[in-house]
Design a protein around this nucleic acid. Structure first.
Length: 297
DNA sequence: AGGTTGACCTGGACGC
DNA sequence: TGCGTCCAGGTCAACC
């Protein structure tokens, strides 16, 4: 299931393969649930447009296209089982293909999503400079697109903050007065972008914090540790191409490797890699939640 | 308003 | 073998 590292991997992979290409044809499946914008609007906005960049904002893939100098954003949310693949035309179409963008070199960008939790939509960026564009850093220089320094201004992104760039002060402030379990707060996209079930469990293990603890009752030191653990686990996962636990694959259909480093996620009953105690599973915020009863307090 | 729960989906795993 | 049941979870709407 795609979370921040998986979406980042897919977005960077697609960006490297299709940037500066022109879209010559758009096909959509007609499955209404998949399309948040009308399919006719998506086809009209993309046909004939040039792909400027593909990047990640939260768990959303943002493809910026331009026609007649006017930018439009194609938003792709992978949901649970969505894939965005760059294919040659002779590759057979996978079942549950919902959109195909044919490029000017005959290659195709295909959106495949068996469970149909994914969503496609068109966003027209507001003019007036509400989106602040930052300078490339060592981390994103290779990506080849401008960097949003504050994604809260991106319009579609919602109020949540980017976990990779949030300061200690802001991170601590997010959970002030929150009576909900810390795990539920980590999953709340209006607080933090991009954290899903896998990386919430893994970050809490690495920080030594029980998922059921009330967010507001965590000390400043614990939250500081949690922020560092979250950033570390997300960065390591990005490096390894994400976690392939469901049917997640990158832009070339290649699986990630971070699932081999999972310490608690879907390891119920298996020994903790640090202390040997069997990993426990409970349900929290309607999600399977995995933790070590000894290492996490 | 913050917090919680269920619906949306389908493939795969499991039990009988 | 085959059928039925359950489970996975990102997000949103509805409810408390």
């Amino acid at each position: 299931m795609p979370e921040l590292p998986e979406v980042e991997t897919v977005a960077n992979g697609v960006n490297a393969r299709v940037r500066a290409r022109r879209i010559v044809q758009v096909w959509t499946s007609g499955k209404p649930q998949t399309f948040k914008s009308p399919e006719t609007e998506i086809a009209a906005a993309l046909t004939g447009a040039k792909i400027e960049s593909v990047r990640r904002v939260g768990k959303t893939i943002v493809m910026t296209v331009a026609r007649d100098g006017k930018p439009t954003e194609f938003l792709i949310h992978l949901g649970m089982t969505g894939r965005l693949l760059v294919c040659t035309p002779e590759m057979p179409a996978a079942p549950h293909t919902h959109a195909v963008l044919t490029l000017d070199d005959a290659r195709e960008v295909r959106f495949v999503d068996p469970r149909r939790f994914g969503r496609l939509s068109i966003h027209h960026p507001k003019d007036g400079g509400r989106v602040r564009v930052g300078t490339p850093t060592s981390q994103n220089r290779d990506v080849g697109h401008p960097v949003l320094t504050d994604d809260r201004h991106a319009g579609y992104a919602g109020p949540g903050r980017e976990p990779l760039t949030i300061s200690v002060e802001d991170f601590v402030a997010l959970f002030r007065g929150r009576k909900t379990p810390i795990k539920a707060a980590l999953l709340n996209q209006s607080l933090l972008h991009g954290v899903g079930n896998i990386y919430a469990d893994e970050a809490l293990f690495r920080a030594g914090i029980r998922p059921a603890r009330q967010a507001a009752r965590l000390s400043r030191e614990e939250l500081k540790k949690l922020r560092a653990a979250l950033i570390a686990v997300l960065k390591q996962a990005i490096k390894l191409g994400g976690s392939s636990v469901s049917d997640y694959v990158d832009a070339d259909g290649v699986r990630g490797f971070f699932q081999l480093r999972h310490k608690v996620y879907q390891r119920t009953g298996e020994p903790c890699r640090d202390c040997g105690t069997p990993i426990q599973r409970i349900e929290l915020a309607g999600r399977g939640t995995h933790f070590c009863p000894v290492c996490q307090r």
